[in-house]
Deep mutational scan, measured.
Amino acid sequence: HDVTIHAGDKTIHVHGASEEFLRIIEQAKRDGIHEEELLRLIEELVK
């Protein structure tokens, strides 16, 4: 999957995102996670 995530003034493109990655991001959004926290989460996941 190619994913584009908008968080605040940043746009992150993730190529080859796994289903698990997508679920984590969707869950985080539903939980109302702060955008900066979401960015950190994404950066950890894509290392």
Rank of each mutant, 00 (worst) to 15 (best):
H1C: 09
H1S: 11
H1F: 15
H1A: 11
H1K: 13
H1E: 08
H1P: 09
D2P: 12
D2L: 13
D2Q: 10
D2G: 13
D2W: 15
D2S: 13
V3K: 03
V3I: 15
V3D: 03
V3Q: 03
V3T: 06
V3M: 09
T4C: 08
T4W: 04
T4F: 04
T4D: 07
T4E: 11
T4H: 09
I5Q: 02
I5A: 03
I5W: 00
I5V: 08
I5S: 02
I5H: 04
I5N: 02
I5Y: 01
I5E: 02
H6C: 09
H6Q: 14
H6D: 07
H6Y: 04
H6E: 11
H6M: 10
H6A: 09
H6T: 14
H6P: 06
A7D: 04
A7W: 14
A7M: 14
A7S: 07
A7N: 06
A7C: 09
A7L: 15
A7V: 15
G8K: 01
G8I: 02
G8H: 05
G8R: 00
G8V: 04
D9F: 03
D9Q: 07
D9G: 13
D9A: 06
D9T: 08
D9K: 06
K10W: 06
K10T: 12
T11L: 13
T11E: 10
T11P: 04
T11W: 07
T11D: 07
T11C: 02
T11Y: 07
T11R: 04
T11Q: 09
I12T: 04
I12F: 11
I12N: 02
I12E: 01
I12W: 09
H13E: 08
H13N: 08
H13S: 08
H13W: 03
H13V: 15
V14S: 01
V14R: 01
V14M: 07
V14Y: 04
V14I: 14
V14N: 01
V14A: 02
V14P: 01
H15R: 07
H15D: 05
H15M: 09
H15A: 10
H15E: 07
H15C: 07
G16S: 07
G16R: 02
G16W: 10
G16I: 08
G16T: 06
A17K: 01
A17N: 03
A17I: 14
A17Q: 05
A17Y: 06
A17M: 14
A17D: 02
S18V: 03
S18K: 04
S18Q: 05
S18W: 08
S18N: 09
S18D: 09
E19C: 09
E19L: 14
E19D: 14
E19V: 12
E19G: 08
E20F: 09
E20T: 08
E20P: 01
E20W: 14
E20N: 06
E20R: 05
E20H: 09
E20Y: 12
F21R: 01
F21H: 05
F21S: 03
F21E: 02
F21V: 09
F21C: 03
F21I: 11
F21Q: 06
L22G: 02
L22C: 09
L22S: 04
R23Y: 07
R23E: 07
R23A: 11
R23Q: 09
R23H: 07
R23S: 06
I24G: 01
I24P: 00
I24Y: 05
I24S: 05
I24K: 09
I24D: 01
I24V: 09
I25E: 00
I25H: 00
I25P: 00
I25T: 01
I25W: 09
I25C: 03
E26Q: 10
E26C: 13
E26W: 10
E26P: 00
E26L: 14
Q27I: 08
Q27G: 04
Q27K: 12
Q27A: 12
A28D: 00
A28F: 14
A28H: 04
A28C: 07
A28V: 05
A28M: 13
K29L: 15
K29G: 06
K29D: 02
K29W: 12
K29M: 15
K29P: 00
K29V: 15
K29Q: 15
R30Y: 09
R30W: 11
R30N: 09
R30I: 10
R30T: 09
D31I: 07
D31V: 06
D31Y: 09
D31S: 10
D31Q: 12
D31N: 12
G32I: 02
G32M: 06
G32C: 01
I33C: 03
I33F: 10
I33H: 04
I33L: 13
I33D: 01
I33G: 02
I33A: 11
I33K: 07
H34D: 14
H34L: 14
H34P: 14
H34E: 14
H34W: 09
E35L: 14
E35C: 07
E35A: 14
E35S: 14
E35P: 15
E35Y: 14
E36P: 07
E36Q: 13
E36Y: 15
E36W: 15
E36A: 14
E37G: 10
E37W: 14
E37S: 09
E37K: 08
E37L: 12
E37I: 10
L38I: 07
L38Q: 00
L38P: 00
L38C: 01
L38H: 00
L39G: 02
L39S: 04
L39W: 15
L39P: 00
L39I: 13
L39M: 12
L39Y: 14
R40S: 07
R40H: 07
R40A: 11
R40C: 03
R40Q: 08
L41H: 01
L41A: 01
L41T: 01
L41S: 00
L41Q: 01
I42W: 10
I42L: 09
I42G: 00
I42D: 00
I42C: 01
I42Q: 00
I42E: 00
E43N: 11
E43Q: 13
E43V: 12
E43A: 14
E43I: 13
E43T: 11
E44H: 11
E44M: 12
E44F: 14
E44C: 04
E44A: 12
E44L: 13
L45F: 15
L45A: 05
L45M: 13
L45D: 00
L45K: 01
L45Q: 03
L45V: 05
L45Y: 15
L45I: 07
L45H: 08
L45E: 02
V46E: 05
V46R: 07
V46D: 03
V46N: 06
V46T: 10
V46S: 10
K47N: 13
K47A: 13
K47Y: 12
K47R: 13
K47S: 12
K47P: 06
K47V: 11
K47E: 08
K47Q: 13
K47G: 12
